[in-house]
Write a protein that binds this DNA or RNA. Structure first.
Lengths: 346, 346
DNA sequence: ATGAAAGCGCTAACAG
DNA sequence: CTGTTAGCGCTTTCAT
């Protein structure tokens, strides 16, 4: 019932009539010509026939590599991350690697512990999407281990790319600018921003983009306030929106993400304001439910799957090219116009 | 900059003045008395001081165990899963195990491939939340590998507990029954169910619970139709709701989950029907956004984190007690009453 | 109760 | 180009 024991490299070598060492070389994709084509073929054929798959323990013990990539996200419940993880997962698996995913819950100590745990497990690289702006643990990791890819940390002008770490981000700057232009085109002159918590670099990027776009559009910055939500969550978005409307009367709001936008919806309803008739709202993410809200949410779509895939490619690339210069990739965003934006009331 | 190499058991043994074999025994939690208390103390102390953590490759090669648990979910984007994964992750990690999470995308072939991949990686156990009703790959896995926990597969009367597999589920039956009773208490007599796809066991359970509760409440089953959504997603919920209202005029709908409920909201709006004034709606899950919908969604809350934690406990338990009888755990659900339910129009 | 020794499966270094 | 050898770190016999 347990079936045959798994074939080892010895079995393959015996079947191919060569020595185990030779079989190992023949199966190594990086065998430039270190083995006769004929031998390679025989070994390959035997391996296929026996269904040989190298044992990860044996190989790991010998090479020190686990084929495991640690992936840190702040919060699986945030709808940006699942598609990113899918992109990571599939890309890694296609290369014979697996992702070990951990949620940091946005806590620095947890992140540090998790990084340590994964490092001890022998993770060959890390993809870090838990996006604090400053982070000694990450800096140390980059300095020591090497293969680290930062997701959505890239464009933070206050920090810049970590020394030696690759990074991937969406072009939030362009996305937020497009959102502002869309609103200005509709006739809005007073546009507020409900940002996420400022210690996340994502927040900094979006906020800076907002402020720049407002200036570029020739709006008066005093008419375009920014309030900060404590987390990227509907509850906090609602609280921040309440503070916003207590002090100002913007005709449009750009939310830090879709969850915060949902919080804004709730606060508008509470105040008897209608969206988009009284106040337009734009989110960021294009989460699955965005088109099903009432009204359907206009939002900046982020290429989540592609971000994940790119992050995986970068980390794999860095594993093989240890000391290549840091690479940054910025993926395009797209404004999805739905029903939550309209001309301001007159 | 790379720091000292990691201490091995030899280093610990040397520091404690014993043989490596002895050190290994001293550190083994299952050492009933196979080592002198004094020796154990010395070794433990040395290990702590050096920061010794056993190498997973060496141990794995020797013992054949990876301390990795494969976790299969159908779709990370479904908001039930993130909290379940958190529960799994934390419980496993506390026991020195890690979860390797994979999305099956609800495709049987993908599930089979992923199970194979994880098995070859030496996963010590599996938690399977990709909830097809019948599944040869899972059955085979249970037969061969042993440590398998099924999530949300338990109460399916058509299949029953897989031979030898432990299982965890929420008490959807009680939850759906409570939802029906809540509606009946408000005066509804015509209650429809928009179920998920019937090949998932979760669907079967909820549908059967609905039908039973309808009978128990003394309603006429002909007034309580069931229509099936193709996936647990808003789009499909909307389509199914359209079919429902083309053929029937229920005053209340119990949706297969919250996403489907959101789809029902959309279809009601399209028809100019108001919720809850014209039609009441109840979901299942209590996803994070449920309270922020308009109207706030009445829904059956599921103890997601606890489900994950229980699944992890069961799989760990089975790893140590290979041939214990299959265990099933059912966790309580709770009806969260919000604004989407009211008395029917008269 | 501890020491000694062997070996899990693999690949890198060296010899031929 | 291929065979040989050694050893990664650990646990588990076996012997003492």
């Amino acid at each position: 019932m347990t079936g045959m024991p798994r074939p080892t490299i010895r079995d393959v070598a015996r079947a191919a009539g060569v020595h185990p060492g030779t079989a190992s070389r023949a199966l190594d994709p990086a065998r430039d010509g270190r083995v006769t084509p004929e031998t390679a073929r025989r070994v390959r054929e035997a391996a296929d026939r026996l269904g040989y798959v190298p044992d990860q323990f044996g190989r790991g013990l010998r090479t020190g590599r686990s084929q495991l990539i640690g992936v840190l996200v702040p919060d699986l419940g945030n709808p940006v991350f699942p598609p990113i993880l899918r992109g990571i997962e599939e890309t890694l698996r296609a290369a014979g690697y697996e992702a070990v995913i951990a949620s940091t819950d946005d806590r620095v100590d947890r992140e540090r512990d998790l990084l340590e745990t994964l490092r001890l497990r022998g993770a060959d690289g890390f993809i870090i999407a838990s996006s604090r702006r400053e982070d000694p643990a990450v800096a140390a990791l980059v300095a020591s281990t090497g293969a680290v890819v930062l997701v959505n940390r890239l464009v933070d002008p206050a920090v810049g790319t970590e020394r030696g770490a690759d990074s991937v981000a969406s072009d939030d700057d362009a996305g937020v600018a497009a959102a502002v232009r869309h609103l200005v085109g509709l006739g809005h002159r007073t546009i507020a921003h409900v940002s996420g918590p400022e210690e996340l670099s994502m927040t900094t990027v979006r906020r800076a983009a907002f402020e720049r776009a407002v200036r570029d559009a020739g709006l008066d910055p005093r008419d375009c306030p920014v309030v900060e939500a404590g987390r990227y969550a509907a509850e906090e978005g609602e609280r921040a929106a309440a503070r916003l409307f207590d002090a100002h009367a913007p005709t449009a709001v750009i939310a830090g993400n879709d969850m915060i936008a949902v919080g804004c919806y709730a606060e508008l309803r509470r105040r008897g304001l209608r969206c988009p008739d009284d106040v337009s709202v734009i989110g960021v993410n294009d989460m699955p439910l965005a088109g099903f809200l009432d009204p359907p949410l206009t939002t900046v779509a982020i290429p989540q799957y592609d971000i994940g895939a790119a992050a995986a490619e970068l980390v794999l690339g860095r594993i093989t090219h240890r000391d290549r210069a840091p690479v940054s990739r910025i993926l395009p965003t797209r404004l999805v116009v739905r029903g939550s934006t309209a001309a301001p009331p007159r």
